[in-house]
Design a protein around this nucleic acid. Structure first.
Lengths: 159, 159
DNA sequence: TTCGCTGCAAAGCTTTTGCAGTGGT
DNA sequence: ACCACTGCAAAAGCTTTGCAGCGAA
């Protein structure tokens, strides 16, 4: 079953109307690993130029409230969004100096999470785990000389 | 040893000048559990009205790059900042519907983190772990009827 | 038919930045 | 005495919102 179908069902079950625009935004969002809000707007408009910026942002909020969208603020540039539903969770390790981001998976965390959440009577929908530190290179570089606004370098670690 | 003294030393070691303004901002930041950037600006200005907004924001970036400041974006309202240095780490459980936030600690995570970070040659500075879900109340409430923009309710869980 | 959703465009908020002057080291 | 840092204020950047008309259920 396609991910976007399940997500659309999820929204429908919440009593949310599935308009043409919403379907399109959801499908484009699901098709990317990461995206900024403006990237998604551009992507959607490449297909249907009439879709308003506000509509895209409103869908992002819906997806967040449905628990299938995460927002990552990495301080360098605008926040990144990511549809987590139906994907293996992965977490992030970021260098606070140069902004490099490494993604990784750690299955042992999953069990602990369930425990904690149940203790508080919550129903778990998604999670983010970020580690901040200095990458090998930046540990050996004079901080004053370090490149400040780098491009977002993402190493994918696929299961 | 006071936390702000250690942080000031940390900045000094990076070759950053300790101005009167920076010392003040650091000390006020450390004195709060959580704060928004604007709250910190107001707090600092209550003591020294001449301090510019830009200066406060610039200190936040320095603290982030030193790995002692975390930024939490909870989608409801502006992001919260938190000085993590010298504190027991705590993580967050958030209701995506009403925005309630519960803080908790989970010592068993710490060991796993160190492992992962070393694998990638990183030096760990701090971390954030957020779990998103539905709180007990919102699980039983019609989503359409749910209160959208709630106040930030934080339950402190102290060790 | 109803009322939630959309497009449009402006407003809102947080954060960043350029520049001339100031102050830490 | 350098040159990093500050205050100021404007600009930038991302996101939200009001409203009139539209369309999903």
């Amino acid at each position: 079953m396609k991910r976007f179908v399940l997500i659309e069902q999820l929204l429908k079950d919440k009593g949310i109307r599935l308009t043409t625009q919403r379907r399109l935004v959801v499908r484009r969002a699901v098709s990317h690993l990461h995206f900024t809000a403006e990237e998604l707007v551009a992507d959607v408009r490449a297909i249907e130029p009439s879709v308003a910026r506000g509509t895209v942002y409103r869908v992002l909020i819906l997806l967040h409230e449905a628990g299938v969208l995460e927002k990552h603020d990495f301080w360098h540039g605008p926040p990144y969004y990511e549809v987590t539903f139906g994907k293996a969770h992965h977490d992030h390790l970021m260098c606070v100096q140069c902004g490099e981001i490494i993604e990784f998976q750690e299955p042992r965390w999953e069990r602990l999470q369930e425990e904690v959440v149940k203790q508080h009577g919550y129903q778990l929908l998604s999670h983010t785990h970020k580690l901040y530190g200095l990458c090998e290179r930046c540990q050996h570089v004079d901080p004053k000389r370090a490149s400040k606004p780098p491009h977002l370098h993402v190493e994918e670690v696929v299961a």
